[in-house]
C-alpha cells in the first residue's frame, strides 16, 4: 500500500505540496498582474470550469487504473444530441434528459468495454473516434446555434455563472464519492493492485462500469453548460480536450497508473494548469518571444517535471 507514515515520507509530501503551491502562485500572479478588465476574467474562467468538471470526474477513473480518452468526443456527441432534440421541438426537460442519457450510454459503453477486459487506452481510443464520428454523422457536420431562452436564462443564477455552481457541486460529489464511500475505497484498492483486489472480492468490473458511466454523465453536463454559455453546439468541439483534462489530474499529483491521488490534488492541478495556460498567453502578448509554440514547450516541460516528481515519490514510498 502507498500509505506513507514515516517522517521522510511526510516531509516529501510537504515538499510536493510546496512545489504545487508555488506553481499555483506563479500562475495566479501571472494572471492577476496583467488583468486590465477584471470583470471579463469570468469569461476566461468559464471554459476552464468545463475542463475542471471533466478532470474531477476523470480523477476517479484514473484512480482505479483506467483512463478515458473519449471524453472530448462524448461532450461533442452530447451537445449534438441536445441540439437535435431541441431542433425537433422536444420540451426542454426531455431534451436535457436525452442529453444526460446520451452521456450515460456513452460512458456505460466505455465502462462495458473495459469491464469485458479491453485495455482502457485501446477501448476509449476507439470510442473517441466512434463518438466523434457519431456526432459528425448525426449532425451532418452542421453546428446547432440559437438555443431557446428557457435554456439560456440559466447562464447565471443570482448573478453568478451556473458554471460555478456546477463546478462546486461536482467537486463536492466526487470528493464524497472518492473519499467517503465504499466505491471510492475500492477505487484505490483496484488501482493499487487489481489482482489482489479481485482476490479480496472487490467487484472490479462493476466499479469500472459505474466510474466510466459517471464520467459520461459529467461529459453530458459539460455539453449542456457549453451550450448555455456559448449558445452553440459544434460537432467538432472539444477535440484534444482529453489531454488538458488528463494534464489537470496528473499535474495535481494523482498517479496515472492509479492507486494514489485524490480530489483535492486534482483541484490544485486544475488551478495550476488553468492559470499557467492563461498567464502564459497573457505574457505572450507582452513578450513576442513567447510564441504559442513555446507555450506548448512550457506546458509540456511542466507535465514532464511533475511526472518525474510523482515517480520519485512513488519509488520513495515503496521503499519506506
Amino acid at each position: 500500500m502507498n500509505r506513507i507514515d514515516s517522517s521522510p515520507g511526510q516531509l516529501r509530501r510537504i515538499a510536493t505540496l510546496g512545489i504545487r503551491g508555488c506553481l499555483l502562485a506563479i500562475g495566479l500572479t501571472l494572471v492577476f498582474s496583467q488583468v486590465q478588465r477584471p470583470a471579463a476574467l469570468v469569461d476566461v474562467w468559464l471554459p476552464w470550469a468545463e475542463i475542471g468538471i471533466l478532470a474531477l470526474a476523470m480523477t476517479a477513473v484514473i484512480l482505479c487504473g483506467g483512463i478515458d480518452l473519449s471524453v472530448g468526443s462524448t461532450v461533442a456527441l452530447c451537445g449534438v444530441v441536445l441540439g437535435i432534440t431541441l431542433q425537433w421541438q422536444w420540451p426542454l426537460t426531455f431534451a436535457l434528459a436525452a442529453t444526460a442519457g446520451c452521456g450515460l450510454c456513452a460512458g456505460a459503453f466505455n465502462g462495458g468495454l473495459v469491464a469485458i477486459g479491453l485495455s482502457p487506452l485501446v477501448a476509449t481510443l476507439a470510442t473517441m473516434a466512434f463518438y466523434r464520428g457519431l456526432a459528425m454523422t448525426l449532425s451532418g457536420r452542421e453546428r446547432f446555434a440559437g438555443f431557446p431562452d428557457s435554456l439560456r436564462s440559466w447562464q447565471t443564477v443570482a448573478g453568478i455563472p451556473l458554471h460555478f455552481f456546477c463546478f462546486v457541486s461536482v467537486g463536492l460529489a466526487t470528493w464524497i464519492l472518492i473519499h467517503h464511500t465504499r466505491l471510492g475505497r475500492w477505487c484505490y484498492v483496484i488501482g493499487d493492485n487489481r489482482t489482489a483486489a479481485r482476490f479480496a472480492a472487490v467487484p472490479d468490473r462493476r466499479v469500472d462500469l459505474s466510474l466510466y458511466t459517471l464520467n459520461g454523465i459529467a461529459a453530458a453536463l459539460v455539453a449542456v453548460l457549453h451550450a448555455i454559455d456559448e449558445n452553440v453546439a459544434i460537432p467538432d468541439a472539444f477535440r484534444g480536450a482529453e489531454l488538458q483534462v488528463i494534464a489537470c489530474v496528473v499535474v495535481g499529483g494523482t498517479l496515472i497508473t492509479g492507486g494514489e491521488g485524490g480530489v483535492l490534488r486534482t483541484l490544485i492541478g486544475i488551478g495550476i494548469v488553468t492559470h499557467l495556460e492563461i498567464g502564459l498567453r497573457f505574457l505572450s502578448y507582452r513578450f513576442p518571444l513567447l510564441t504559442p509554440n513555446s507555450r506548448l514547450i512550457v506546458i509540456g516541460l511542466l507535465v514532464i517535471l511533475v511526472a518525474i516528481w510523482n515517480q520519485r515519490l512513488q519509488r520513495g514510498s515503496d521503499n519506506a
Binding site: 471579463a40 471554459p47 457549453h226 468541439a237 504559442p292
Partner: peptide, 19 residues
C-alpha cells in the same frame, strides 16, 4: 494551434481581460 472554435472564444475573452 488547432482549428478549434472554443480555443478562439477563450482567447477573445483573454484579450478582453488584457484590455
Amino acid at each position: 494551434h488547432l482549428d478549434r472554435s472554443e480555443d478562439q472564444a477563450q482567447q477573445i475573452g483573454e484579450w478582453t481581460t488584457l484590455g
